[in-house]
Each structure stands twice: as C-alpha cells, then as structure tokens.
Design a protein around this nucleic acid. Structure first.
Lengths: 344, 344
DNA sequence: AGGGGAGGTGAGAGCGCTCTCGGATGACCG
DNA sequence: CGGTCATCCGAGAGCGCTCTCACCTCCCCT
C-alpha cells in the first residue's frame, strides 16, 4: 500500500511488444493504421503490464484534458440543500463518463472564490465549464467569458453583459407557469395568487412572467414575493391570506414554497383543493409526493437538463480542437409537463 | 473567445525578467532561496504576462496532481436525493480548496462503473480518494486497496476484507441511537419501537445496535426494517401499528423515515407526542423542522465529517510524498447531539 | 590577504507522451 | 519484371515544467 510500484510507460510496452513507442501510442488511441497482428501484440503487452497512459504527459502535448469543470455558485445553503442540483449533476456525470471526461467540481462561496474559479478556468486546466449561475448580479459569467473557456450555463444567466456566444440550457419556466395557471383557471378558479421565487434568479422571474401572461389584469395584491424556501412560502401565504382572504388558488414558484403554503392553508382552516387549489413547480420528488394533499406541480426533466448541458459543451469543445461539427451549439429550452395530483 | 491566445510559458517569464527558468520556477513555488530584488522582478513579469503554470507539465515531473477523487457509489437514486451527501461534499470542497486541491467527482452506478473507477484510481490521476461506500457487499474498497491510492472512507465501510490501513470518518451512530432511545425512556415510554434503515449499510446496523444496547430485552416485534425513505417509513409504521398497537414511542433510523411514520401515525388517529413520541436521526434540515410536529432528532455535523475526511486524506497524501507527519492517520468517529423539538 | 564556506543562480537532463516525417514494405499495373 | 503508389511503422523532436548539480559570488575567519 505504501509501496508505490513504478507504473509501466509506453516505452516499456513498446519493448515488450517489440515495436516502437509510436505504434503503441497508435494502438492505445484507437489503433487506426496498424495491422491486426501488431495490434494484438501490443494489446497483449498492455494487458500484461497493466499499462495505463499518463494523463499528464498526454495533456502536455495534446492540450486536452478530458476534464470539464462544474461550477456551482452557492451563496446560500439552500441551493445545495435541495436535490435539484444533485439530479442535474448526475445527468452531467453520466454524459461526461460516456465520453471519457472527468468532472471537476468547483463550489464557490463569496467573492474570493469567484476570483479563484476565474483563475482556475483561465489556467487551462479543463476543456470547458458548466456553470450554474444563480443570481442576477453574479460576476462569474463575465469572468468566464474573459477566461475564454467554452461554457454552457445551467439556467438562463441573468447577465447584462455581452450575450454573444452565451449558451444555456433551461426549462421552459414561463411556459410551465402558464400551464399551471391555466390549469387552475380551467378548474374555475378566478382569484389565483402567485408566490414568486427569489426574484434575483431568472427562473423566478420567468415563472412570474408566465403567471402574468395568463392573469393579464390580475390584482397586484395576489402576487407576493417568496424565496423558494418552505419558510418563505409560509410567510408569503400568511400575507396573501391577510390581503386577499377570498383567494381560491395559489401557484407557488416551486414545490418547497408550495409545501410551506399548504401548511399555512391547513392551519387557517382552508381545505385543499376544495377551498384553495395549489400548484407547485419542479416535481421535486421527495417533497411533491409527500405533501398533504399530494402536490399538483410542473415537472421538468432535471437530469436531462444536465445531460444536455454536458452534450452541448462537449460539442463546443470538439469544435474548438478543430473537429468537424454542425455549427456552433445554441441554447436549449426544455419543455415541462403538468403533473396532476390531489392539490389542484 | 474562439481565439485561443497562446499561454505564456516559464521560459517567457524568465526572458522578460532576465533570469533563468529555474529561478522563475523557484519564485512561483514559494520563492525560497531567491534574493528579494530578483523575486520582485519575477513577480512583476509573471503579473504582466498573466502567467499561469501548466499543471500537466508540472504533474509530469512531480507526480502530484493536487487533485482528490470523491467517489460516490449510488446504486439507488435515494442516496443522491437527500441533502446529506451534498453537505458532506461542501465540507470536502472547502477543505480541499484551502489546500489548493481540486475535487474530481466520480459518480458510479452499477458494476461496470466500479471497474471504471478502479481503473481511474489505479491510473494515478489523483493523489487520493474519498469514498462513500454505502453497501456491505460493495467491491469498491477492495478495488481501491488494490489500486494503492490513499483513501479515506465516509462512514465505516462494511467490508469483510483486510482492515489494515482502512481509515474512515463516521458519526457515532450507535451512541446517537442510544441517546435517542434513552431520551424516549426518560419520557416514561416503555413500548419503544425501532424502524431500521437499510440494513446493508453500516449506519443502519449501528443505529440498530444502539437501540438494542438500551432495549436489552425488547420485544422483537418492535423492530421493523425500513430503508431510509419516507415510503419505507410509512410501510414500516403501518406494520408496527398492526403488530403492536400499544406502542408509545418510535425511534426512526433517519428523519425521512420518521416523516413517513409521522404521517401514518396521524392518519391512524394517534397524537404525537402525546400518544406516541417520535425521534429521528440526522437533523436533516428542510425535513426535520418542517414535519408536523417538528421532529426531535439526533444531529450529526455532516459538513464537519466531510472536512475531516479531506483533512485526514491530505495528511496521508503528504506522508506519502515524504513530508514529515505525525504518524499514520486513523479513523475518527464524531459525536452526535440530541436536538429536542416537539415530537418527543 | 587568502582560504573556506554558505548561499544564489543557471545549465541541462529528463518526466511520458504525441505527432510529423521519412523510409520500408508490399500490392498492383503496364 | 520494373516502377508507382498506398500503406504501415519507427526515429526523433518537442510539450512546459522541476530538480540536480556545478559554478559563481561574497562574506567571514584566521
């Protein structure tokens, strides 16, 4: 265990197989242009010696790292506490693994970390970056653009700078919100309230816009700002009940918010969905199914978002190294679906 | 953006500063043994050129990567869906960042992935590994030991192989469980049931052992196997109520399980804590506080566990490269604390 | 004033790999 | 049967860095 066996090099394999380094290299990298018997011999030598290429040496000459950074800006604990991000990460991991890429995770908190991440990305340690930019005033997109690293954002970055070349993957937050509100309207509800998410995030803004699309001349009193947390949902719901006791439906910006709202509604004696219908967003599974009553919500395929981000990025990275591709990748907005459960 | 500026090399910095490569290297790596005026000149040149060392070239000669792999075996979605892991990851990230190490995340699903991870670790791409080995029959510890990579496990690995040199960080699951059950007993409860976790994980086994420590001659009917999920908790609770309608307390193996149990208890007309007192484990925050009533539970400092794992590993890694250290690192078991809320 | 030593600095040899380029080999055609 | 060309393989030059070792300076002691 403490004994570090000297790892075999290309040279050693070449000697054993009785060929040159170049030939071994060719075989290891796909084996094109090497005749079958030689390929066999080299493969055998690799096997016997347990040869594994030295990635550092390889990167040194190829300038590729087969590694992608995943940057998660995490100013608040909340973000990380919900499973949303974990699911996305899983999708990303799957896709990267399938293409033999490593995932380098960079978690940031605060300004100093931003600088550090910027330096790291500019340092050319990775071939590209997947960035979850969560807040409107986040300096990260700017830093990254300057670093010149191919990047795909998770969620539309709320960034006022140069938009050219910005690629992102997002859910159709606005469309999903419209569906939710229309569903409530279709149930005959007319006093439909909205508890927003944290409005410094584009997803919250987009969902609010979707609500407004349907409720064109809604009572402004029916809109209360939340923050994507259950506690925020509770507070907002209390405020709503005080302001508009006659409301008959609530569209919450996410499931956690809805869960909080549900508790307050129950405590206030309202029956859900009979008195007040509630719709959430995300279909965050441990939560949405476990509320009482089970939550009607807007589902987004989170894992697929992650996978797509990775795919888009890898395409961009390939383009960079000069391989043929069909044009620059562009942003993708994934559809959402309404999941009907008991709450609306 | 598409234009990849050629990054300056050590050579370039040396030329600009009018010194040799060796001197620049010395300055970049701490500057020991270089006279002040020269240090200044080199620093200036580095600054002006925006020089960033090429990690690949450096690793090639030093055989260090300043990178640590975090391996998460994830046979079931559940593991990833709960925030437990995310918190630990955060602790790890902080500690690694503080020591200028990168975090390479390896997510595995299924046997093929295990082989892949084994190969990766054996390939010497990272200086060490942090492994979350979740199941008793997991082949990963064996693979890793064979790969000869310094490793620290998250949670006691339930592994029957050679235990020498196995280092892990765990919570005092057994002690925490004892505290929980004693607390219930202290409340005057006598028919205390236990819903276990998934018993192929050591944490579940240890918590069960802790329960048994206190309930030395408990009715075996009071113990039902769960699986750490809310649904499992519901099922188990129903079974318990059918078998032992006279139970007056439940110790659930984790908070999610407790949440499920709580729902079933309420549905069955039992009042909590009046009729049945409930204690969970983890103090998983969005969950434990939001249950009705708020959950009394056993808190473990998850983030600290992560930080500690990283610290232990880095110490082991240093030892490897020949730096002085105070002996081989050994496993650590962190204490837990009982958090009293409304449910017991 | 001369010698020894300590401390700074530079030259150069790799680390393990890829990739270009020239040479060898054999197939195929006239 | 000689020439042409495509195909396959090996020699060798780096990629950007670290680190050893020799040299050079300058200081201090006798």
């Amino acid at each position: 265990m403490t004994e570090t066996a000297p790892r075999p090099t290309l040279e050693a394999v070449a000697a054993r197989a009785g060929v040159s380094r170049a030939t071994v290299s060719r075989v290891v990298n796909g084996g094109d242009g090497v005749r079958e018997p030689l390929v066999e011999r080299v493969r055998k030598a690799v096997e016997e010696l347990g040869y594994v290429p030295n990635q550092a040496a390889r990167s040194l000459v190829t300038r590729r790292h087969d590694a992608i950074a995943v940057v998660v800006a995490e100013p608040e604990t909340r973000v990380f506490a919900d499973p949303f991000f974990a699911r996305q990460l899983r999708g990303i991991s799957k896709e990267l693994t399938a293409h033999d890429n490593q995932l380098v995770l960079l978690l940031t908190e605060g300004r100093d970390d931003h600088a550090r991440v910027g330096r790291y990305l500019a340092g050319g340690h990775v071939d590209g970056a997947l960035v979850f930019s969560l807040h409107l005033d986040d300096p990260l997109p700017g830093l990254i653009q300057r670093a010149g690293v191919p990047t795909v954002f998770g969620g539309r970055p709320g960034w006022s700078g140069d938009q050219r070349g910005v690629v992102y993957v997002d859910s159709d937050n606005r469309g999903g919100a419209r569906d939710a509100v229309r569903h409530l309207a279709g149930l005959g509800r007319t006093r439909i309230a909205h508890i927003t998410g944290a409005l410094d995030q584009t997803s919250a803004v987009d969902r609010l816009d979707g609500y407004r699309d349907v409720m064109v001349d809604a009572d402004p009193g029916l809109i209360v700002e939340g923050d994507f947390t259950p506690t925020g949902g509770e507070r907002a719901m209390r405020e709503l009940l005080a302001r508009c006791p006659d409301l008959d439906a609530v569209f919450a910006a996410n499931d956690l918010t809805a869960a909080g709202a549900l508790r307050v509604l129950r405590a206030s004696g309202r029956r859900v969905p009979d008195d007040v219908a509630v719709v959430g967003f995300d279909d965050m599974l441990p939560v949405a199914e476990q509320t009482d009553p089970a939550l009607t919500t807007v589902r987004q395929d989170i894992e697929e978002m992650g996978r797509l981000m990775a795919r888009l990025l890898l395409r961009g990275v390939d383009r960079r190294t000069g391989e043929r591709v069909g044009g620059a990748p562009s942003s993708v907005v994934l559809p959402t679906t309404l999941v009907r459960r008991a709450s609306a």
